[in-house]
Design a binder for these strands. Sequence first.
DNA 1: CTTGACCTTGGATACAACTCCAAGGTTTAT
DNA 2: ATAAACCTTGGAGTTGTATCCAAGGTCAAG
Lengths: 167, 167
Amino acid sequence: MYRIGELAQLCEVRTDTLRFYEKHGLLSPSSRTDSGYRIYTEADAERLRFILRAKAVGFTLAEIAELLSIELDKSNWACADVKGLVDDKLANVEAKIAELNHFQLSLQRLSQACCGGPESAEHCSILEALESSTENIRCENHSHTHDDAQFTKTCQDKSAVKNTQEK
Amino acid sequence: MYRIGELAQLCEVRTDTLRFYEKHGLLSPSSRTDSGYRIYTEADAERLRFILRAKAVGFTLAEIAELLSIELDKSNWACADVKGLVDDKLANVEAKIAELNHFQLSLQRLSQACCGGPESAEHCSILEALESSTENIRCENHSHTHDDAQFTKTCQDKSAVKNTQEK
DNA sequence: CTTGACCTTGGATACAACTCCAAGGTTTAT
DNA sequence: ATAAACCTTGGAGTTGTATCCAAGGTCAAG
């Protein structure tokens, strides 16, 4: 039997988070004291751990609510249903990874093209790329032309410019 | 010279988005008609394209605002400043990728452990993993024990259960 | 001169997952 | 008996990126 603060400490969440989960139907205390304090049982704690584990593999709270409803009524669901949720999530995660990989590649190319020195940014390859090239930033049309000339070219005036930079 | 709807169509954004960018200091029309209509010049369109390209490589609008302020005053900034922004973003993106890769791995393991068949979910490996294992879901403590016995085990009752599944 | 397409503004709504706050009640320790 | 630490509720705020709406003004065509 835990009071809200105890359960929170045990599972390393905030009390606010527990109330938030309650409001959203994920976890309600099994009972209340006469004065209205929430009382959580060990089973409640287990349910919370289930939620946290599901969060740890990337499920949103809405998805976790679905998992919990299956969990409470397992015999009326098939493995296929559960696996479906996991596979949908997996596809979802993989799509996000693909997008981020695209960002990563573009950023790497931009970074490599820039000397990164104390020279004036007037001829900075990064800014130039953002000013004009779309194809070379988004690598969506895989043209395979290997024309990364634009990206290996660095800042033109490496010769001292001695600009005072105020940031 | 474009009216808001024309520029929006040209760059494939909503007019609302252009007003939103204006409200947030990213892009203001160069002038207005007597009746108050926004008038965008070709330079404004270029600035919008800069914004959209920066978005395409993963920058947030706040970061883009920073890039734009450099863009407008290039000579007072160094390549190092620009490259710094890109490299910070890159680190940021890579951290997100790492997190998602972790999700992906966990989800793959869960998926592989489950038969995915029409059997009752009463002994579903996925639910069991969420009920009890934390270490096997989060692969944070790289124990390298290769104990994926828990993950290769599939649903126990492949023998017909014939549960009617209502979803 | 009316219809429809366009434009204006300010403000509301949406999503996710909290986090914080104020005003007040309860429990525990001294 | 009183202070500290806990708890309650309802509601507002956060971050990011828009999207939608209502009430009204403008413009071109027929």
